[in-house]
Amino acid sequence: MSLLTAKTIQKKFGGVIALNDVSLTVDKGEIVGMIGPNGSGKTTFINNLSGLYAPTKGQFIFNDEDITGLPAHVITGKGISRTFQNLRVFPNITVLENILIGLHCRIDTSLWDVYARFLKTRRVEHQAKKKAMTVLELAELSDSQGILAKNLPYGKQRLLEICRAIVSDPYLLLLDEPCAGMNPVEMDDLADFIKLLQTKGITVFVIEHNMRFIMSVAQRLIVLANGSKFQEGTPTQIQNDKDVQAIYLGDEGDL
């Protein structure tokens, strides 16, 4: 049963067509990878899906609901979380506070609660902290909870960003080049972590350049080229596909 269906998504920036007729589905519980050369529209696709842009044409159906063009904060509330290609943790606050901000849409404190029912608010905050700690423990970050996020090592900051995205128990997690700048050991750890998330029932959609990583993680790959869907298949199919090799490395004739 499909969790997300993208129907003929098109995005134009002025005269530039960044995405053209991209259709795909993501099933519940899958790890789907998206690859493609630089500028092929991978990040644009995620930005459209997560509500930072509205697509020019097409539809996103998520959990049988049309979410096309909704603002980002509403889409997060519906259960789609994401991370960014260029790291975007909140640098000047602690690791724990970062995670708590990720829980924002799962805490239903109103202004009335803040001032008039502060005991209830306190209880809710206490539960939120507990929940945040379980996620930190999952990622083995609980020892660093009091450290400012900017003082974490780079690989841990990446991990923190993922934790911040999953603490709200999303149905779908979008990862935009999660291992950019990571060393091979950190990459393997991340691959294990993503598979762990899958066992927790989170569907993962991951954009990545690193072939070794994406091959080890994804069950299905979608190849994007020049803003259009180029190929789709299992990692081994994609790896052996002559056309895919051609868009990455050029035709034999070009050499």
Binding site: L52, P71, L100, I101, H104, V114, E125, R164, S168
Partner: peptide, 25 residues
């Protein structure tokens, strides 16, 4: 010390990331 305070801080730190956290900035 509520989610409001944290939302304000998130907006200060990174407004785009804050919106993706589900905060109506």
């Amino acid at each position: 010390h509520s989610r409001f305070g944290r939302a304000f801080i998130a907006i200060r730190e990174d407004e785009l990331a804050a919106s993706v956290m589900g905060i109506n900035t």
